[in-house]
């Protein structure tokens, strides 16, 4: 074998390793209950959950007590409700988000969210807000 081929083989195997490691580390999009059962097998892994804010329960955020603590109730796509704890300030558009993606771990009573992506309906949709007769 030529040195070039050997080097290419090494690089190709590194490539396979990189992809395998990436996919090995990605997580599944699950439900709250799914995250609970998976957490028993692998407590350090973070999971992705699509859910929405449960507006029936109050959003607890009082920066004068702790600016880095937010607690709210969320309902996942299967209808399971869960309290979510987020150790950061309240995301800008939490209340108006129609859907959000939370990434984190299920531990104890709470789902500990590390990241929250909220998707707002109004952000990109057209509403005739300017339709006023001036």
């Amino acid at each position: 074998m030529k040195p070039l081929h050997i080097a290419l083989l090494i690089i190709a195997s590194l490539g396979v390793a990189a992809v395998v490691s990436l996919y090995g580390n990605t997580t599944q999009i699950v439900s709250f209950n799914g995250a609970d059962s998976l957490a028993k097998e692998n407590p350090n892994k973070e999971y992705h959950i699509y859910c929405k804010l449960n507006k029936a329960k109050p959003v607890q955020y009082d920066p004068q007590i702790d600016p880095n603590l937010l607690i709210f109730s969320a309902i996942d796509s299967l209808g399971t409700e869960r309290m979510v704890k987020y150790l950061k300030p309240k995301p800008q558009d939490l209340e108006r988000a129609e859907k959000m993606l939370i990434i984190g771990k299920s531990e104890g009573q709470y789902f500990h969210a590390e990241t929250i992506f909220s998707k707002c309906p109004s952000k990109y949709e057209d509403t005739p807000v300017n339709a006023t007769n001036k």
Binding site: Q60, D62, I65, D66, P67, N68, L69, I71, K85, L87, K88, E107, G108, Q109, Y110, H112
Partner: peptide, 23 residues
């Protein structure tokens, strides 16, 4: 910060994990 929602682990101790990070 004050942990407004202290959690207890299986042994019944107060868990202060949340206090340590991401403040």
């Amino acid at each position: 910060g004050i942990d407004m929602a202290p959690e207890t682990n299986e042994k019944g101790q107060t868990d202060t994990k949340g206090m340590a990070f991401n403040r």
